[in-house]
Write a protein that binds this DNA or RNA. Sequence first.
RNA 1: UCCCCGGUAGCUCAAUCGGCAGAGCGGGUGGCUGUUAACCACUAGGUUGGCGGUUCAAGUCCGUCCCGGGGAGCCA
Length: 460
Amino acid sequence: MRTRVKQALQAQKPQNGLVLKGWVRTKRESKGVVFLELNDGSCRGNLQIVADSSMICAEGFEGINTGAAVLAEGDLVPSPGRGQKWELKAGSIQVLGYADPKPYPLQKKRHSDEFLRSIAHLRPRTNKYGAMNRIRSELSFAVHHYFRDHGFNYIHSPIITGSDCEGAGEMFLVTALDLEQPAVRKKPVDFALDFFGKKAHLTVSGQLPAESLACALGDVYTFGPVFRAENSNTPKHAAEFWMVEPEMAFADLDEIMDMSQDLVQSLTRHIMNNCSEDMELFTRFVDQSLEERLERVSSRPFERISYSMVLEVLQKSKKNFEFPLEWGLDLQTEHERYLCEEYFQGPVMVYNYPLELKPFYMRVNDDQTTAAAMDVLLPRVGEIIGGSQREERLEVLDHRIREAGLDPEEYWWYRDLRRYGSVPHAGFGLGFERLLMFITGASNIRDVIPFPRTPNALEF
RNA sequence: UCCCCGGUAGCUCAAUCGGCAGAGCGGGUGGCUGUUAACCACUAGGUUGGCGGUUCAAGUCCGUCCCGGGGAGCCA
């Protein structure tokens, strides 16, 4: 039976005859003694393995280097040396997998994030990315935990979609056609001959299916990958990312604003409470002000301000913004950053955006000029949530669809939800990676996903 | 996609005005009775991102392409 490093480090008393398996982080050798730091991914810490140089080892110690996988059998005893409470006095050591130290790229020193991205298959073996992936796992569970506690049903929305326009962004085409052939014939491609008998794409959002389920089950959420084919080259965009999308029947804009805040705060607090060892690494090496900021964000209410009021604040700021401030124009990054990082110095919810800036499914407010939409902005990462109350009135929805230059017939089933027992409902999308960036202080989205997909990057 | 910066040993970087391409770490070898990013000594390691140009001479200047980073747009 294999003992995890995590268990061994938490031991209350010495134990004999333990077997540990893991990867060697460093080897220190002296005349008669060899020290190995063993990590098995169960936690951030390593277990020190102490072995006599003369100890009979089937493979010999020459083969044991940084990166090698080993099995160590022995007794867990209090460590006489400084720096660790326990160590394993090895009775025997076996090499499970060699790692030739010459080409092995990970050294026992700090590597740049840029270099580690080029060896994404090995970077989880570093302290930082081991911690990152454990936190990512814990955050995923926390999402499910939160919604389960609040009576939500977890639903699976499709990844392949037949709808051309799900709201925003360029979409990836999904096809079973041989794209070489139609190109040679120089004919327009006939997607009626394709697998689904129509054009298909990877989804950009699970919202539309979620509305259907919400209007049956009440409170639902999706949590899965979504895809954007935008040629975005920034530290905050990926072509494939995970989104959390709650959708609530009988809810209005205020309710999802309440919930957005509660969700972000609960998830942040969950990680602070349950991943303290891994989080300590990020506070120490990535962002010294991390702990203080998370503490503040998770305990104070978020500011709420309408789009119109935002314009007033920005105009009064006397700041020299590059982009114009005029009612009807979208807020730019410089505006959001000023609002979030200077004016309020904390999370901000902006609501009631001009109607023409928002997609057809967002509810038209009584003023007929704004949509019941809201964005949550966080310091450093910017927009983390976008949501809205949905348009539940069929005639208004149809008008908005046509206004957008779309065909209502294409949305026949979505419109049916408004024909039969339509109710007010609302929801939002939370960018999972952006939340992870906020929580860990990571400044590039490529560092919070094990194998990030971005333009021109599909090596792994 | 646009703007700015960068690409030199496995990694992180230096190289003055255009004048012999270097250091630390990592690797190898040897030493050291318990190390903690161990320590000491020795040692190997280079098409300076690719192609073209200017020059007696290019890591350095010019053109172009590729790659990376930052900012912007789009968004979560």
